[in-house]
Design a protein around this nucleic acid. Sequence first.
DNA 1: GTCATTGCAAAAAGTTTGCATGTCA
DNA 2: TGACATGCAAACTTTTTGCAATGAC
Lengths: 146, 146
Amino acid sequence: MAVSGGLRHDLHGRGQRLTPQRQRVLDLFERVGAGHHLSAEDVHLQLLRADARVSLATVYRTLRLLASMALLRELELPEGSRRFELASAEQHDHHHLVCAACGRTEEFDSAQVLQAGADAAAKHGFRLLSSRLTVRGLCGACAAAV
Amino acid sequence: MAVSGGLRHDLHGRGQRLTPQRQRVLDLFERVGAGHHLSAEDVHLQLLRADARVSLATVYRTLRLLASMALLRELELPEGSRRFELASAEQHDHHHLVCAACGRTEEFDSAQVLQAGADAAAKHGFRLLSSRLTVRGLCGACAAAV
DNA sequence: GTCATTGCAAAAAGTTTGCATGTCA
DNA sequence: TGACATGCAAACTTTTTGCAATGAC
C-alpha cells in the first residue's frame, strides 16, 4: 500500500522502524477513512476487537509519532480526550461560518485565508500543514429575529 | 464594576450567589486581559500568588460556571489542559499557529483573515461576530527533527 | 547483534465528586 | 435560617514513563 510504503521509508529516514503495531494503527485510520475522529481509547478498543493487540501505551506513542509525521492530525475540539483523524493529502482546507444563535453552518473556501495562514507560518518559522477558519455570526433569520 | 455587577445579577437570576471566590477568578481574567489563555492551574497559582486563596476544585467549578454564562470562552487548542480566556465583546480577533508535533502555539493578527471572514459572512447573509483562524504546522524545531 | 520498540505496571497530569463545614442573601 | 458554595481529600480519567524483554533490519 502506498501510504505504508511511504511510512516505512519515512521512518527509516528518522532511524526508526516500521513495526506491526504502527502499521495496525495507521491501517485502522485508513480503514475508517478520513473525517473519523478517534481517541487513543477508540483505537485501542477497535484493534482489540480486530484481534490486533496493541498496548494502550503504544497506541499513545504511535499517535504522537504519526501526528508528528503529519499522517494524522490532532483535532481542536476539547472533548475530554484527544482525538485524531487521518490527514489525507487530497483534503483541501475548508472553513466554517457558524450561526451563534441557531448553530446553522455554512462552508466556504478562501484563497485569502490560505495566504494569510501561509504568511503567518512563514513569519514564525513553521511549516504549514493546514488552516481552518471559524467565523461566528448571526445568520439572516436569527439576525432578523433579534 | 460593570461586569461584576452584571455577574451578581446574572447569578441571582439562576438562583446562585456571587462569592469572593467567583469574583476573584473573574477579576483575574479581567486583570490579565482578553487574549490570555489560562488553565485551571494557572488561575489557581496566580490567585495564590496574589494572596487570594481559592481551592483548585473551586477554580474548576468556577471556570465551568463562567463559561456556561459566556463570560469566559473555552479555547479549542489541544494543549494538554483546558484553557479559558475572557470573552469580552470588544475583544479583537486573534489567530493561532499551533505546532502539530509539540503543541507550541503562537498568536497573530491578520487583516486579510478579518476581510475574508467579513466577505464570507456577507455572501451568506450573516452578521459577523468573530472569526478565528487556526493554522496547524510544524514549528522550526519539530520540522528539523523530522 | 544492535538498538529502537513494546508491554506492563506504576506514576503523573488533569478533572470531578462526596461530604462536612462555612456563608451569602 | 436555608440553600448554595467552599475546602479538602479521595476517586477518576487520560496520558506519560521506567524498565526488562522483544524483535526489526
